[in-house]
């Protein structure tokens, strides 16, 4: 089943009189359960493509479908609803709310989705256990290491049981050990829950985990290959 379908997408940024083409007619389909790496040098368009798929930005032309729904021209609130219900995000900078504990950070998407307190408690406890942070539930982000924070972010991304998780350079700010641990967890969750992962990276260690590698260069797909990830 197609989780993501991108058809001939372009994204043009106008900065003053200078026009920058971040994506130039990209088409891509991602099936459910894939563990896809978008790779390429800086400025190749990986993050832009991830933002299009994640309904964080809108294409200048072309169509984007997520879980079969055309998200190309949704308004702000509709895009927020789409992100809340169908898409999880993991960012390079961990992206936790500093005033909330690990537990509350994971709980946030469930609150926004209107889950009951008991449902929330069960789900958050289960997820924190899955990322091996059950004992750090009450800690705030500044009391956690970078690796632990990224694991909380993974748990948060998974909380609403999305069809798709988008990760932008998820290991860029982590040392080798923590980076590997994070990738192991993502891979394990991908295999156990069948959730689709798409991550933008240029870290070769991360690419090794992917089952599909899409290479972008200058806003176009240069190569798209299926591989045997770890």
């Amino acid at each position: 089943m197609e989780v993501v379908k991108v058809e001939n997408v372009t994204r043009v940024y106008q900065i003053g009189k200078v026009e920058t083409r971040a994506l130039q007619g990209v088409s891509l389909t991602i099936e459910s359960g894939e563990f896809t790496a978008l790779v390429g040098p800086s400025g190749s368009g990986k993050t832009t493509l991830l933002q299009m798929i994640g309904c964080l930005d809108q294409p200048s032309s072309g169509q984007v479908y997520v879980s079969g729904k055309d998200v190309t021209r949704l308004n702000r609130n509709q895009r927020a609803d789409m992100r809340r219900g169908h898409i999880g995000f993991i960012f390079q900078f961990f992206a936790l709310i500093p005033t909330l504990s690990a537990y509350e950070n994971v709980e946030m998407p469930l609150l926004l989705n209107g889950h009951s307190p008991s449902e929330r408690h069960t789900r958050v406890t289960e997820l924190l256990k899955a990322v091996d942070l059950a004992d750090r539930a009450k800690n705030r982000p500044d009391q956690l290491s970078g690796g632990q924070q990224q694991r909380v972010a993974i748990a948060r991304a998974l909380a609403p049981k999305p069809a798709l998780i988008l990760a932008d350079e998820p290991t860029a700010n982590l040392d080798t050990t923590n980076g590997q641990q994070v990738m192991e967890i993502m891979k394990k969750l991908n295999q156990e829950t069948g959730v689709t992962f798409v991550f933008a990276t240029h870290d070769p260690r991360v690419i090794n985990y992917a089952t599909r590698v899409v290479t972008l260069k200058d806003g176009v797909i240069e190569n798209d290959s299926r591989v045997n990830g770890k």
Binding site: N77, R84, G85, F89, F93, M108
Partner: peptide, 16 residues
């Protein structure tokens, strides 16, 4: 600003 972006990314509407 970045936190607001995070909240928005995880689906918090502008109204909230």
């Amino acid at each position: 600003t970045r936190e607001i972006g995070i909240l928005s990314a995880i689906g918090m509407r502008g109204g909230r």
